[in-house]
Design a protein around this nucleic acid. Structure first.
Lengths: 333, 333
DNA sequence: AATACTATCGAAACCGGTTTCCATCGGAAC
DNA sequence: GTTCCGATGGAAACCGGTTTCGATAGTATT
């Protein structure tokens, strides 16, 4: 059942059917009726491939998810919510998500071109090898999450790490603390760097000391958090508050505090980052910085759509706001 | 840069180029060389739409994710891992995932036909209205997760709920318990029903009593778990062990136990279901039934591929094994 | 040497749409 | 009564591949 069949049934030319389907002018109300009736009476579904072949548009948004995202559970929660947000925004515009199953050594541009995706969203930690580079330089609208990669038509969506870190540190200061430590993630992590920088900046602005032993870097793991937590708490002059660059790290610090019988929040306040579901389940519940992940997905999707529609517009750079969720680990009883 | 350009460059007909690209016989080694060289020297990428238009195959697997999955965080972890597994299996076969953004009242078959997907995977709690029905009856290979929907070419992948529940209950019995309660999820949940049934069966097999107050149903929430936990623990004859149909419920029971100063595991053992990441963060860490979600994704993907390739094969019905992860909440110290 | 067969290659039709462009027609303007 | 114009609808080319089928050349057979 194709467009010619419909045309035959309606007694018109297939070009006319096409015009009706695309709401073009130059079709009388009468023939429009005839065509619509013919379509009604059959089970006609247009063939997107034929359509895309001529128009060069696919109504497809390519989604690349880096493999590392598929491992760690922190980001697992993260990306699935982001994807929901993307989907939610696209459904209104009749776009669909094409999730590429690409190993990192393949040329992403090849996939994007093959499927003529109208735009691309990239999630995760792409090291920026040739595989990504060619895509970014191709002129296909791209939106990248959480990191800045150059390119002619590359937009960004990231959560406001500076603001998140500032909220956390200032909250602790507001609670009366002066000896505030920070545990960040691994060196290679872009976010970790930003959080660490902001911690230092705010502390300096408030003229609070940051001894070398107070600014630590580790892994995004609970074990690493516990280890560094122990190190902090056994210092001659231990901090009275810790800001951690991830909830999993904070959970480790909490564990260390428990071991060393340091009460939280009385003798140590803790703020994490990400607001993972587990925050509410820890004892005491963990204060954290919440990123609006679903909203970010929405924003990313709309950003690509905008870039697709308005070729002239400069690529957007969205910084999505974050919230401090205060829970018992950082609140006076 | 299309196939005709390549043909011109190589000095052959485009049909010959096509034959080379598809490894057809009837091309001499010499001309094959010429064509490959021509392709090398340019930036040719075949147009999948043109290809799909003639072949009727798309190398696309449609993925439908029900909207409810996008809400609850329990399943959030669940489906993102499943999707990773699907992706992992498809990449080897050069298939891609087309994630449809469909609201539940739209006709899914329309999407599937429009994009000529070769197969479909459905995730989540589709109520089975017309929107799904027509797809299931269409003859397009479908794989459905965790529930049984009839259809001519519909395969299933589900985790073995019976076995999981049996593992949990028998473990508790093995620990010497006789008064074992069960808290399941909401009535409408297919999984909850299976877990409840299995609990009753095993208890009966072991000739252990199941008083009405021991077999409760609630929501998949911690609050509901806490409420029912309190009810259990304040019974004249409280259970000494509880098997919960979800980790979130178990977390609530744990909370209730803490409030009522019932020590876990000494006076109450608890086993949850799903093995969410939070299990390790609870105090004490929660024993749980682990479903191999990524493996399930893999299996589902391979199941569709098999169905696509072998039209004759009866649709598969995979029951994926589960494990009991014993942690302190259900282990003698 | 004539015939039969096989391997190789190209021309053309086709997939199902879109788009351009031209023919036709009715009514308005002169 | 002509001429002109805008509205309408259809024929045909095109998008970029695949596939069929026929032509040709080279080799084997008799």
């Amino acid at each position: 059942m194709n467009i010619s069949d419909v045309a035959k049934k309606a007694g018109v030319a297939k070009s006319t059917v096409s015009k009706v389907l695309n709401n073009y002018k130059g079709v009388s109300e009468e023939t429009r009726r005839k065509v619509l009736d013919a379509i009604e009476s059959t089970t006609y579904t247009p063939n997107v491939f034929a359509k895309s072949l001529t128009t060069g548009k696919s109504n497809l948004i390519g989604l690349f998810v880096s493999e590392d995202l598929l491992e760690s559970f922190i980001v697992h929660v993260y990306w699935s919510e982001v994807v929901s947000g993307i989907r939610e925004a696209l459904v209104k515009e009749k776009y669909h998500v094409l999730m590429f199953a690409a190993s990192p050594d393949e040329d992403f541009l090849k996939f994007a071109k093959e499927y003529k995706v109208d735009g691309v969203i990239m999630l995760g930690d792409y090291p920026e090898p040739a595989s990504v580079r060619s895509l970014l330089d191709s002129g296909i609208p791209c939106v990248v999450f959480d990191r800045n990669l150059s390119g002619s038509r590359v937009g960004y969506v990231s959560s406001d790490d500076e603001r998140g870190s500032e909220l956390a540190v200032r909250h602790l200061i507001g609670q009366g603390h002066r000896r505030i430590a920070h545990i960040s993630g691994p060196d290679w992590s872009f976010e970790s760097a930003k959080r660490m920088m902001t911690y230092r900046r705010v502390m300096e602005e408030e003229r609070l000391p940051v001894p070398a032993e107070y600014a630590l870097a580790g892994e995004y793991s609970t074990q690493s958090g516990a280890e560094l937590g122990r190190r902090l708490l056994t210092l001659p002059e231990p901090p009275t508050a810790v800001f951690c660059a991830a909830d999993t790290i904070a959970a480790g610090v909490l564990q260390a505090a428990k071991e060393l019988q340091v009460e939280v929040p009385d003798r140590l306040m803790i703020v994490g980052y990400d607001d993972l579901p587990l925050c509410e389940y820890l004892h005491p519940p963990l204060a954290s910085i919440r990123q609006e992940r679903r909203a970010m997905g929405n924003i990313a999707a709309n950003a690509v759509l905008d870039m697709i529609r308005e070729a002239e517009l400069p690529p957007p750079d969205h910084r999505v706001d974050v919230n401090l969720i205060v829970r018992e680990s950082a609140r006076r009883p």
